[in-house]
Design a protein around this nucleic acid. Structure first.
Lengths: 218, 218
DNA sequence: TTTTAATTTTAGTCTCATCTAAATTTTATA
DNA sequence: TATAAAATTTAGATGAGACTAAAATTAAAA
């Protein structure tokens, strides 16, 4: 049984490995987790002891197969709870992270299994990130930015690139959510804005917005 | 913000106060929580420091008004989660305690508020215990034998007086479990049997059976 | 009312997870 | 390549929460 801190470290290393580099540095972890490098070093030794990471002094860490599996399962729990909070408790998708951060540490295989069923085995969370399966396997979604989609194609909104609160609230206001089907009607060359249609509404979206919206082409 | 341990101590003291005595002894807490008396003493000093309990060396503790409110809110969270686990995730009533024990420490007023709404503001948990309201007020339910319940009242089964195997098997066979809601339709004066309704079923129950079944009146 | 037993507290230790400050190793630069 | 800068680790401390063993207090029995 892992402690809450151990789970959080594994999760963070997982994120840093997939999103940035292969070998993760002590400072990168410390910055990401808003803690001190010396605390990270301590924990790395403990995780290495438990064979969850491979760690060499001054050389950074990477997850072992076991560590990766554990991390993916924590992420699975986090994302399933996020789906629950948004779909069942009607939270906004930008309000759920902190709560899911706590719920993800509740220990019960059976709970997560039943929650998954209750939510109809969702494949993506409210931020459009894929939910690992029970074995910790992640089916990577081929993400594109809305700005990269060709005219007349229809795409489904699966998330945002940078989840700044204002942007999330902006999307909320105009009515774009995860799962919203968006058709690209035209692109303006002078300002790179896109003209789109969704839920029978039509509107223009700035370059900045269209470059921050992840979609999946249907 | 209270720690998990502090919340657990307050909850335990609350239970001991209501179920047993007014002033709670160090040993009673230690036994109830399966910990050592010296650990309890330590924590009592910390809780007294925070004005959550009134503590005098060698004289036991009791909750302050604040401590009582905090404890009741932890219990509220616990019982709401139990309802969720049983009603939404289809757990059996005897499987949920351990999981609720973890979920109760998730910190978010908003979460509990929305969960309460999602569950249609339940007043009792799957064990028949009352759920404190958001302010920490508990509407006490009185425990009675089924035989003592008035006609047309609805009660919830909370246990048996003497747990003879044959009686438990009898209950199982007819479909009465902990948490089963039973309505008393009529009483026969000639043999003191009761005619009841539960889960859309109707049947007669002998005096002997109705005097061996603990219920709580809703 | 002593003496004994039970209860409770104190003192000191342990682990986990964090920190600061100092030392060490690696990397980058002159 | 020597040296400065950055990154990383070590050493030592802290606080929460638990423990054991011993001391102190209260309650019970002779």
């Amino acid at each position: 049984m892992l402690t809450r801190a151990e789970e959080n470290y594994l999760k963070s290393i997982f994120h840093l490995e997939t999103e940035l580099e292969d070998v993760v540095s002590t400072n990168a972890i410390a910055e990401f987790m808003e803690t001190k490098p010396s605390s990270v070093t301590d924990m790395m030794r403990r995780l290495a002891e438990k064979e969850l990471v491979t760690y060499q002094r001054y050389k950074g860490v990477y997850l072992t197969d076991l560590g990766e599996k554990v991390a993916a399962r924590v992420i699975r729990r986090h994302r399933l709870w996020e789906v629950f909070l948004v779909e069942k408790l009607n939270f906004q998708w930008d309000e759920v992270h902190e709560i899911a951060e706590q719920l993800e540490h509740v220990q019960s295989e059976e709970l997560i299994c039943r929650l998954d069923t209750f939510l109809n085995n969702p494949e993506i969370d409210p931020h459009g990130d894929p939910i690992p399966n029970a074995e910790g396997k992640i089916k990577p979604l081929e993400k594109k930015l809305l700005s990269e989609v060709d005219i007349n194609k229809t795409a489904i909104c699966i998330g945002v690139k940078e989840s700044a609160t204002e942007f999330l609230q902006f999307l909320d206001r105009i009515g774009i959510q995860i799962g919203t089907k968006i058709k690209i009607l035209s692109k303006e060359t002078f300002d790179n804005s896109v003209f789109i249609e969704f839920n029978t509404k039509r509107m223009s979206l700035s370059q900045k917005a269209s470059e921050n919206l992840f979609i999946k082409i249907l």
